[in-house]
């Protein structure tokens, strides 16, 4: 929200209509080129090398890792580390738990958030601005503030020991940002569209589902992606509500990974880290532009 207003202020100083932006005047001096190249090279090394090192280490046997230089390639390529991480390290179970918590939470959050965004932005009634503000305050409250009462409730209602605490908590904590973003997207949809539709005999609820939802399909994907990363990468909530090993999500499982083997098995540990990174990597490879746009527009969450 802050971004939008600042943008208009920045452009407002221009007396000319906007032109496509990164079309700058050509540089004159060729001398600046060399240091730019050095900076880029350093940047690439800093970004890529840690991930490459991680991947190579995930293919080393324990003695290979401990006895040879950390720079060396694996002397034998131990792809079995991945199988070991998946089964003995329980990563398979943890991934399954994560999916079972993330997917329902995402679906619920998007459904409720879109409906609320529609009601707050398209529909006309007294108090809708105040209600939006009530949702926004939720973004300021640190999750630490709600953990203990929720723990009590889940414990006393017997929900502890299932994945429901995670699903419910993720849905609730994700709603403020979802409602805010969906309401913002609905701002660009003209109200007249729904007035016309309802005159044609479709009820407003039907109009919401059959007309407005397809219109904000793109926004749904963006918000869904942003929330997916937040929930998938969450540690605090998962750590609080998973009281048994069978319920651990991938992040909690990875944090406790070394414990399951007795002594640290570096190959499987790195394989587990790689498997965890791999999920987000695949999504990022295909949808990076959308992810970048979505995450920066969801920056208000902090």
């Amino acid at each position: 929200m802050a971004l939008d207003t600042t943008r208009t202020q920045a452009t407002g100083t221009s007396t000319h209509p906007r032109t496509p932006a990164p079309r700058r005047a050509p540089r004159r001096r060729g001398g600046t080129r060399l240091w730019v190249k050095i900076v880029i090279t350093l940047l690439l090394i800093v970004e890529i090398y840690p991930l490459t090192w991680m991947f190579l280490t995930s293919l080393k046997s324990n003695s290979d890792y401990l006895n040879h230089s950390t720079w060396s390639l694996p002397s034998t390529w131990e792809w079995g580390n991945y199988a070991e991480a998946w089964t003995t390290g329980n990563i398979g179970l943890y991934v399954q738990n994560s999916l079972l918590a993330v997917v329902p939470a995402l679906a619920l959050m998007l459904l409720l958030g879109t409906a609320a965004g529609f009601a707050l932005q398209i529909m006309v009634w007294k108090g809708r601005n105040l209600t939006l503000l009530v949702f926004l305050t939720g973004m300021m409250v640190p999750p630490q503030m709600i953990l203990l009462p929720l723990f009590t409730v889940y414990f006393q209602t017997g929900l502890s020991g299932t994945l429901w605490p995670l699903i419910l908590t993720y849905t609730g904590t994700g709603l403020p940002l979802t409602v805010f973003m969906m309401a913002t997207y609905y701002r660009s949809v003209p109200r007249e569209l729904f007035e016309a539709a309802t005159i044609d005999g479709a009820g407003i609820l039907r109009a919401f589902w059959t007309i407005s939802v397809p219109l904000v399909r793109n926004a749904l994907l963006t918000v869904g992606l942003v929330q997916f990363f937040f929930i998938w990468n969450d540690l605090l909530i998962a750590l609080t509500f998973t009281n048994s090993q069978d319920l651990r999500t991938i992040q909690v499982g990875l944090l406790n990974f070394t414990g399951d083997f007795g002594a640290t098995q570096y190959g499987p540990l790195f394989a587990a880290i790689c498997l965890n990174v791999f999920g987000t990597l695949v999504i990022y490879l295909f949808l990076n532009q959308k992810v970048m746009k979505g995450l920066t527009s969801g920056a208000v969450k902090g």
Binding site: L108, L112, G113, A115, A116, F118, A119, L120, I122, M123, V124, W125, T131, F135, G138, V141, I146, L150, L168, T169, T171, G172, T173, L175, P176, V179, R191, F194, E195, T198, G203, I204, L205, F208
Partner: peptide, 22 residues
């Protein structure tokens, strides 16, 4: 667009979950 029952149906569930969890 001012149908109160529709507002309640669309906004109610989100507001309820948000209130109960946050």
């Amino acid at each position: 667009l001012g149908d109160r029952r529709a507002v309640l149906l669309l906004l109610g569930p989100a507001l309820l979950v948000y209130s109960l969890i946050m």
